[in-house]
Design a protein around this nucleic acid. Structure first.
Length: 443
RNA sequence: CGGAGUGUAGCGCAGCCUGGUAGCGCACCUGCUUCGGGAGCAGGGGGUCGCAGGUUCAAAUCCUGCCACUCCGACCA
């Protein structure tokens, strides 16, 4: 993509409403535009990052055996009356009427609707286990939206729903999502720690929140230091096999958010040198809720014995739009965002230091073409700007690799390749630079 | 929802107290000179001063009401 033909509205000064670093950087780097409290438009760079995160989430959900569907944002109120949540949900639910004065709502979540779909088509234990997910915009009319996309009212969420014949089977479904979440966040360059969470009326131990560790996170976190280096399964993980040996090490060590923290237990279970007190951002939550929706909504299947019984359900959320902010909180420096390779809006930023200078143009255009042909996403700064402005903009938007092409280097056939995360620079021949990037930035 | 605060050009702000031609920096447009870490000079465009009412010869400025947004707290992917 040529910058001269792109839409990348960056800001030199920080809009005053932005207090936290990810929000400031998202506004300055031109990822989002606020339209109302907690409601944002996604500009081209932001849209690309969001799509990359979505892609990783989708790949890992699919790998774990979940099946993608797409449910609407607008739902009829009747479904929610069935589950009893229409009255319970309160003012957080955005309620609207259509032209026929029918009660509708902008979905804050989809348990009711997915249960309706399930019960319409599935009547036998033979169709189980089943896990359906979608990635869709949600709306929760938060009292106080804040921190940009970290706590928006409208947000993009992946929500999966599992259906099983009994609790034992549901636990297996739960474990699959547990492992998928570990992999998902790791692939985004994040350290996310599962922490035991409140389970609501069902009880048991089947709910975990996944917290990304970041100094600027919104909740305080206490955990065992060894959780930081805990191995995350590779993509060859066998989801059909027993996952408990993978999960056990994660759940056996102390990890809690501030609100459920037990100082006494922390002191007793974690040796002093292993105690870690830091901050984190909740990016996912998984839980088992048993028959909470299947009973009132009559989602029944016949077992092998021919007797109908309510299915055991679980739901599994990932805050996709929140992750954009969380990744920035976890990965930035004074100059701007430092995108992990896997979610970066472009892999390479190519700077032409002197557009209009024939040899420089030829070299930059050549590199642009070769990288693009190799399947690498390149943002090519061909604007007639001062070098300083180009460097500042590129650092701000945080692309993993920078290639700097200027007349001085080109005179001796050389360009500079810079790694954004480490600041390492190398002076290479044009061929050397192209080869380095094809190897480093992937195809 | 309790507390605090802010609305003046895309962004950051001054002007308001003490009413009298709506300003500054960045960004944007034109020209020239520049060009290896946010260039210089000259010229230029862009505003219902959040909205509505009131006071006044005259309101960004004073008064009243409303709206929006932000921050702190309680709640949440």
């Amino acid at each position: 993509m040529r910058l001269s033909r792109y839409f990348l509205p960056t800001l030199r000064e920080t809009p005053k409403e932005a207090e936290i670093v990810s929000h400031r950087l998202m506004l300055r780097a031109g990822l989002i535009r606020q339209q109302a409290a907690g409601i944002y438009s996604w500009l081209p760079i932001g849209r690309r990052v969001l799509a990359n995160i979505e892609r990783i989430v989708r790949e890992e959900q699919n790998r774990a055996g979940a099946i993608e569907i797409l449910m609407p944002t607008i739902q009829p109120a009747d479904l929610w009356r069935e589950s009893g949540r229409y009255d319970d949900y309160g003012k957080e639910m955005l309620r609207i009427k259509d032209r026929h004065e029918r009660d509708m709502l902008y979905g804050p979540t989809n348990e009711e609707m997915v249960t309706e779909i399930f019960r319409a088509y599935v009547g036998s234990y033979r169709a189980l286990p089943l896990n359906l997910y979608h990635i869709q915009w949600k709306f929760r009319d938060e009292v106080r939206p804040r921190f940009g996309v970290m706590r928006g009212r409208e947000f993009l969420m992946k929500d999966a729903y599992s259906f099983d014949i009994d609790e034992a089977a549901a636990r297996i479904a739960y474990n699959k999502m547990f492992v998928a979440y570990l992999r998902t966040f790791t692939r985004m360059g994040l350290t996310a720690i599962p922490m035991r969470a409140e389970t609501g009326p069902i009880g048991g131990d089947l709910s975990h929140e996944f917290l990304v560790l970041a100094e600027t996170g919104e909740s305080g976190v206490y955990c065992h230091r060894d959780l930081l280096g805990m191995p995350v399964p590779g993509e060859d993980v066998d989801y059909q096999g027993d996952l408990t040996p993978i999960i056990a090490p994660w759940t056996s060590l102390y990890a809690a958010t501030e609100d459920v923290h037990d100082a006494e237990r922390f002191a007793r279970e974690v040796p002093e040198e292993k105690r870690l007190h830091t901050r984190g951002i909740e990016v996912g939550q998984i839980f088992y809720f048993g028959t909470k929706y299947s009973v009132p909504m009559k989602a029944m299947v016949a077992g092998p014995d021919g007797v109908e019984r309510p299915i055991h359900g679980g739901s599994y959320g990932i805050g996709v739009s929140r992750l954009v902010g969380a990744i920035i909180e976890a990965s930035h420096d004074d100059a701007g965002i430092v995108w992990p390779d896997s979610v970066a809006p472009f892999a390479v930023g190519l700077i032409n230091l002197k557009p209009g200078d024939a040899p420089t143009d030829a070299a930059a255009e050549g590199i642009y073409e070769r990288l693009t042909n190799a399947g690498i996403e390149v943002l090519y700064d061909d604007l007639d700007n001062r070098a300083g402005a180009k460097f500042a903009t590129l650092d701000l938007i945080g692309l993993p690799w920078q290639v700097i092409v200027g007349p001085k280097g080109i005179a001796s056939g050389e360009v500079e390749v810079k790694r954004r995360a480490t600041g390492e620079r190398e002076t290479l021949s044009i061929d050397g630079a192209v080869n380095r990037l094809v190897a480093g930035a992937g195809g």
